[in-house]
Design a protein around this nucleic acid. Sequence first.
DNA 1: AATACAAAAAATGAATGCAAAATAGGTTCT
DNA 2: AGAACCTATTTTGCATTCATTTTTTGTATT
Lengths: 250, 250
Amino acid sequence: MKSEIPETGVPITQPAAGNGSDRQEASLHGEVLLRLRDYVVEGNIPEGARVPERQLCEMLGISRTPLREALKVLAAEGLIELLPNRGARVRQLSQRDLEELFDVMAGLESLAGRLACELITDEEIAAIERLHYEMYGHYLHRDMHGYFQINQQIHESIVAAARNETLKTTYVNFAGRIRRVRYSANFARKRQRWGEAMREHEAILDALRRRAASELSDTLFQHLRNKRSAAIDHLAEGQNAGLETTPQGD
Amino acid sequence: MKSEIPETGVPITQPAAGNGSDRQEASLHGEVLLRLRDYVVEGNIPEGARVPERQLCEMLGISRTPLREALKVLAAEGLIELLPNRGARVRQLSQRDLEELFDVMAGLESLAGRLACELITDEEIAAIERLHYEMYGHYLHRDMHGYFQINQQIHESIVAAARNETLKTTYVNFAGRIRRVRYSANFARKRQRWGEAMREHEAILDALRRRAASELSDTLFQHLRNKRSAAIDHLAEGQNAGLETTPQGD
DNA sequence: AATACAAAAAATGAATGCAAAATAGGTTCT
DNA sequence: AGAACCTATTTTGCATTCATTTTTTGTATT
């Protein structure tokens, strides 16, 4: 097997019928775009692997026209790259690329926190506090999966509280790019970072309660920066060790 | 004239030949994308105007396939929107959309400033200082155009100093979305904001010299926030007064 | 005259077809 | 045997064609 994509394809038989997912998209192009984006984000295609259009068409059960449109969009989103006359391949992210991505994410969350301070309600803060304590429970039980999930919910809640759809969309886009790597490399937070991260989260909550915009902005940025270091370190180790990809991992 | 696009089209006769612009793009799709993006950003198509594919094809001298690919990408970039079976139209930005865009821009620049503090050289700071004094000259001479131009250069310099290509790309994308509106509405900074803006710029420079990351982040954000208010106010006035579009303005 | 309906025209979404480029495979030459 | 070259196959980029859907135009009815 020389970097061929695995065939996990379920053809798009019923474009807008009940297919488990709640999103509906009238056009074939849109459906293909959603499917293909997930497919790439979930790490089903090895990095840098060449992706013959034909094969994807068969996998999705469509012709090349809508597929190529979707590929162009995914390229614009930064998930894949299109080499002239040489097809699409999954974008290979260098360590530097990842650092950049993490920093932009940090900036976006930092912005989200700043904006959130302006209009967030007591109820929203209370909801985040509940999540925080729930997460603390997972921390005490050393339940990494649960912890990670709630952690993500907290960050999403802050972004939601910013009340800025443009920001949210951008945030989701970048999160997808990173998630691809996360899926592929299956990296998790280092155990030793846990306590630190919990303390940072408490500082975040504290600043949020006081609606201290600048302070929250700083705290969030620093928190994400620390995350970045842990992730990059872990990834570097994995790369050196020739880590195999684990598509379904989480 | 019922919102038809004006015909300013120069067909793409020589895809990669010396066409004034320094960018070269091998594929027809890429060329079309660049041309069309500029065309939209420069405000050549009225907001919300329907854009018949056929007409654009004739204007660019190509078939519908590469054009449609480009349209999909522009839609993904947020410049136009594609209504199912009803064609593409230039995305109409509500006042809320603009506020969101400005805030995201503010967040990105704020991030840029924060990152810039980490690695910016004395030479880069000196260059920005020179720009600052040049801008001050324009301010004294009440040369709004010159002022505006240098102002933009300063902000771009800060983004460049962040040494983050991902951030820069995102920044340019959002700047384009706003620029479209700027071109169309031809809004300029209010005179009364000038003095204020100059003082803010001095504070920015000051924080930059001291590499005070958090402070610079705050100052930049606040500066952009103030810009936002001025722009939104101006735009609201213009809309109420039924301001006509001035594509070539600047 | 205004509304409702129906047919025609046009525009969109997607599939197919075709030429050019790239890759693969085989052959020749050193 | 290995490198260079040439041919065949595959793949890509774009144009064209076809089927739907939308929009327009025309007609009939109240």
